[in-house]
Every structure is written in structure tokens, then in C-alpha cells.
Design a protein around this nucleic acid. Sequence first.
DNA 1: TATTGTTATACTCTATAACTATA
DNA 2: TATAGTTATAGAGTATAACAATA
Lengths: 149, 149
Amino acid sequence: MTSRTSTAKDVLAKEAWGQLYGYFQRHREVVHHHLAELELSFGDMRALMVLDAENPRPMHSLAESWACDASNATWMVDRLEQRGLVERRMLRTDRRVKAVVLTAAGVETKMQLLERLSQPPDDLLALSSSDLVAVRDVLAKLPKGSGQL
Amino acid sequence: MTSRTSTAKDVLAKEAWGQLYGYFQRHREVVHHHLAELELSFGDMRALMVLDAENPRPMHSLAESWACDASNATWMVDRLEQRGLVERRMLRTDRRVKAVVLTAAGVETKMQLLERLSQPPDDLLALSSSDLVAVRDVLAKLPKGSGQL
DNA sequence: TATTGTTATACTCTATAACTATA
DNA sequence: TATAGTTATAGAGTATAACAATA
């Protein structure tokens, strides 16, 4: 709706975006490599990210966090439970809800995954320290809230 | 294998990577929004990216580019062909191979998709010009070849 | 006999609708 | 009657194996 002639900054933003986008295209496989090592699917990863051992999460709340149907949440938790990574707990306050927590094994798996994912690709290490600081600090200025379109 | 104590640069690289990774996590939905507008699946996008109108690509070569099974390539090309976006051509040199090209409609759809994908998110426009230049120039130093692990 | 591509089939992930049990 | 969760079922997307045509 804000259609107008391109400013110099529009061009810069497009070029910066192109670099960012291209970089992630090239590193998509990195994530899948780490997941394969831990025998996790992409869905497993999204599931683990939301869960922990301290805060039991009701199924319907998980479905919302995962932006999926309730029946799909049942299926995802079933798989993780069969692998011993999560556990369903009954709530005494409302016996309809089943709250999900990570087991010790789930915590361990999540930790290993996070450690791998936080490992920067080698090509970043080839940059100078000042370049790394520049990227880090500029991106740190961007809003961390839910992504916009 | 290069296990050693963390240098200051290791820490910087991890922080920069964390920012890059987080940014793309937050903007994953942007791509899906653009795809939905054009009624394309994620697979359709990957398919279109590899194809053009000038260079007929044999099926087995496409399966390799898409890193999928040959039978899956058949299925993907079938769908695009039914939508009129691609066309199978016989090769007179080897009558076994079927080479795939984008139709005029396919070129148009691919162009519309590329235009949308190249549109930077609003939050980048909120950065200063010098910040945009910094991000663009640092990322431009990274290798463009096939991603490494 | 080897290669290109397709078909038949099955498995994973996702959703919709119908169901159970609580509230 | 409404809500939390599951089950039954169907569809998209992926793979493996058997097959047809051509080299």
C-alpha cells in the first residue's frame, strides 16, 4: 500500500535482506544435519523448544504454541512419549487436562540439540572480530517480538 | 575435532550466529505468507527456483537438484504441469529422457514469487542506512558456494 | 545389461469430524 | 452445554520397489 519510488534506503534494505536470505538458504541443511544426528524430526525440534521439565503444559496450549491442530498435538506428544522424552501428567484441579513435561531424557536431548544449534557455521569464524561485532550489534537492534509480515 | 577452549572470537561468532538464527526463525512465516498468496507450496517454490524457460532439465537431474527421489520428482513435475507452469519435452538425442522447462505462465509465477521474496521485512527499513550497509557488506564476504556444515 | 522415467505402494505429517470424559 | 483430549479417517508429501521403454 505504501507504493512509491524507491529511496536509497529501500535499495539498501533489499540488498541487506538478500544477503540475509541467501545466507540462510545456504545453511538450511545445517539444521537438518544436527537433527539427523539426534534422530529428531523438524517437528520434534519445534516440540522440544516449547517444553521443559518445570512447567507442565496442557495439550491445547501446546497445540496453540505449535500452531497446529489438537489432534496433531496428540500425535506429536505420543511419539515423544514413546521415545521417553516427554511425560503426560494429570492435573488434580481439572481432570480433563493432561499436562506435558520433559523427562530427564527429554531435557538431555533438548540440551544436546540447543548446543549443536548454537554452534556457529565455520564460515562465520572466518570473519574478523569487528565484522562479527557489527552483525551481532545491528541485528540485536531488530524487534524480538512475533515476526511481522 | 577442533575441540579447544573458546576464544573471544568463538564467543562473538556464536553471538552473531544467534542473532542471525533468531532473525530467521522470526521471519519463517514471511515466506509462507508469500507462498500462500501465489497458492504455491514450499516444494513448488524449490521446484521453480531450479527451472527456467531456456534450459530444459532432465527429470533425473531435477531429482538431484531437489535432493529427492526420482519418483517424487515425477510427482512434483506432474503437479506443476497440471497447473500449466512447466512442460515436459522429449529429447531427440535420447528418447528416454524428458526435459522440463518453465512455460510462460511458469516464468510469470516465478517472477512474482521472486519479487515478493526479495521484498525486505519492514523491520529492516527501520534500521539506519549505515547499519544496513554494515550487514550487507559483512554478509557479502561469506562464501556463496554450497553450504558447509 | 544399464539408464530414464513412471507406477504401485507405504510411511510421515497434517487436518477435519466424530467421540469420551470431565466440567 | 462447553471444554480437553483422543480416535478415525483423509490428504499432502516423501520414499522404496517393481516396471516399461530406450540405450
